[in-house]
């Protein structure tokens, strides 16, 4: 059973660093560039990569990720290819954790047992299924049995009772949604996030990653003051979308992530 996620967060803590978690849609902008972009992200200092599994009806996502998903689906990107890319990435990177993020129906249709077995074999470390709250997590039991961590969302609306239930089931880390809204919106309230993240951490030692609305080095640094890791999705997806070939996508990924990594490290050292 892989311990990559736990290992990575333990490592970050030991070194006094904050985690940087980029999100990209698998297969966008170009299916053939996906593995190269993942490697570029890892080289540029990503501590964990969230790989989006495109879905036709992403209710929690804003226009940037919706369109990115539509482009990937139009290019025939599905679970089998995505797992193939993860396996290919693992050929050169045995340590960077990979979390697949998506919605339930594609996994349901693919088959839970088949998905669990193949995802583990490919080197997937966790899944974040946006439309599977704690109440419905029995649906994806085979994934847990395969050692794949189930990452749960915590939202500003989450009640104490729910938070306790999430803490009991959460593995790897919890993903705090920084505001009530969709991905890529700009409603970030740093003081509110800090209050909430501190509260989540009081109840246990599971790491907290914060996403939704983190768009650049400045917001990342602000959020990292309380969070263990920051997730950046829409802003990266938008900058990758402009790339016309694999080479430019790789350099866009690097150019996007390097300054954020530097800013986070500088802030942590200060």
């Amino acid at each position: 059973m892989s311990e990559r996620i736990e290992q990575r967060f333990a490592d970050l803590r030991k070194r006094g660093r904050k985690g940087l978690v980029p999100f990209m849609t698998a297969g966008d902008p170009l299916p053939e560039a996906t593995v190269a972009i993942m490697r570029a992200l890892a080289d540029a200092g990503a501590d964990l990569i969230e790989l989006g599994m495109p879905y036709s009806d992403p209710v929690a996502d804003g226009p940037t990720i919706q369109h990115s998903s539509e482009r990937a689906i139009a290019r025939g990107v599905g679970i089998e290819r995505i797992l193939g890319w993860v396996a290919e990435f693992r050929e050169t990177d045995a340590t960077t954790p990979i979390v697949l993020m998506g919605y339930l129906n594609p996994i349901e249709i693919y088959g839970y047992a088949r998905f669990a077995e193949q995802a583990r074999a490919a080197g997937v470390d966790g899944v974040l299924i946006v439309d599977v709250p704690v109440e419905e997590s029995a649906s994806i039991e085979p994934l847990r049995e395969a050692g794949i961590r189930q990452i749960f969302l915590v939202a500003p609306t989450t009640t104490e009772v729910r938070l306790a239930a999430i803490r009991r089931q959460a593995r790897g880390f919890v993903y705090y949604v920084s505001f009530a809204g969709i991905t890529g919106a700009s409603q970030l309230d740093p003081a509110d996030v800090r209050r909430r993240v501190d509260h989540i951490k009081q109840g246990g030692d599971i790491p907290v990653a914060v996403g939704f609305g983190v768009r650049d080095a400045a917001t990342a640094v602000t959020i990292s003051e309380s969070a263990d890791a920051v997730v950046i999705g829409s802003a990266l997806v938008a900058s990758l979308a402009e790339a016309s070939d694999a080479e430019s996508a790789v350099s866009a990924a690097r150019d996007f992530l390097v300054p954020i990594r530097k800013a986070l490290d500088a802030a942590a050292a200060a």
């Binding site: 209710v59 929690a60 339930l104 946006v130 439309d131 599977v132 709250p133 109440e135 419905e136 749960f152 969302l153 915590v154 939202a155 500003p156 609306t157 989450t158 009640t159 729910r162 999430i166 949604v177 009530a180 809204g181």
Partner: peptide, 20 residues
Amino acid sequence: AHGRFADYGGIYMPETLMPP
């Protein structure tokens, strides 16, 4: 109580909407 009609129904929604 969980909104299930035998195997069907339920609440497959993002966390933000679960409390409401």
